[in-house]
Every structure is written in structure tokens, then in C-alpha cells.
Amino acid sequence: MGGLASTDDEGFRKELVTLIPHLRAFARTLCGDATAADDLAQDAMLKAWDARASYQMGTNMKAWTFMILRNQFYSEKRRSWRQTQLDQEAAERTLMAVDDPSAPIALDELRQALRTLPDEQREALVLVGAGGFAYEEAADICGCAVGTVKSRVSRARKALQASLEAGAYDRDGSPAGEAMGAILADADRLSGAR
């Protein structure tokens, strides 16, 4: 490898390192289980590093790495026929894990409601609603049409709201239907604090 290539590698590595926290966050929304999510994020990071020659400097590296992570997630899921079952168990473990009293109720409820969405709706909503991607970028990441992303996001938003309003997750004596109220109150508090 020549001197120029190693300089490129260094720049690539630096940018990749800054993306690790975002890859972890995206993986967490796909997997639910925090340990499985970090494994996925590490695999994606390594795949991105190994494929660095095919990355064009100056293009959107965040979208590129998210696409790698997402493809990795689905190919692993396809590989194992038991995965659906495992995902379910992992999701249940995670739900119990976040069930600690110090976790704000609104976030907890949102996490649980998110898990009930179909994968493709959840990823679209997370990319656009939390990851800061434009619809066009999310479409590139998911390998589908822009219109498809828009309709998935819209369906996800409606389903999430309905699920939170229904209070399908009443637990430990917390009354059903409180989730939306808690989220509204908390969002108020957050925007007031700014």
C-alpha cells in the first residue's frame, strides 16, 4: 500500500470512529437486546473498514455505514431460522432490563411500543425521526423507493401513537392509557428546559 492510501485509511478510520455511537444507537433500535446490538454494530464497523476501498470519500459515510449495518442485520436474521424466536426472547429480556424504577416511564413505554412495529416500519421511523436522515437518504439505506419510506414512516407514526394511547403495556399497577400522557408531559418538560 502506498503513502497516499494510508493517508486515506487514516481519514477513513477517524470518520468511522466518530460514527460508532450512531451505529450503536441504530443497532439498538433494530435488535432491542443491547449485547446483540453491540455485536451487530461491531460487525458493521469491521465490514465498513474492510470495504473502505469501495467508499467514495466526501459522500455520506453515515448513510453508507448504516446501510452496511442494516444489511448485516437482515442477512443474519435470514441465516438463522430460530432468530425470530431469539429476537422475541431478547426483546422480552430487554424489556425487563429497562424496567428499572429510575428509567423514565415515557421512554420505557416508547421502547416497548417501538418493538411492536414491523421491522421495516421501525427502521424507517428511526432513520427519519431520530437518525436525522432525509427521506431520500433513508430510501438509499433501506434499498427502497422514497415513497415507500414515506408511507412506512407515516404508518409507523400512526401505529405508535395508537399503541401508546391504548396503553397496551400497563404494568405494575400503572394504569392503561397513561403512556401517551407521560410522553406528552415529558416532551413538554424537555422543550421547556431548552
Binding site: 470512529v17 460508532i20 455511537p21 454494530a41 415515557a106 416508547l110 421511523l125 431520530a130 407514526r157
Partner: peptide
């Protein structure tokens, strides 16, 4: 209003993980 509130919480949930310190093994592996 409700959609905005959900959006705020969704970003908060995502950012919470973004703001976690990165486990050492990530950098070791790289």
C-alpha cells in the same frame, strides 16, 4: 402535538445511546 411529543422522545431515546461512552472493544477491534 402528540406526534411532536413522540418525535421528541424518539430522538431522546436514540441520543441516549449516542451519548453513551463507546465500549473499549470497538476501538480494540478496529
Amino acid at each position: 402535538l402528540r406526534q411532536q411529543a413522540i418525535g421528541v422522545k424518539l430522538r431522546q431515546m436514540f441520543d441516549q445511546v449516542v451519548n453513551e461512552p463507546v465500549p473499549d472493544d470497538f476501538l480494540d477491534i478496529l
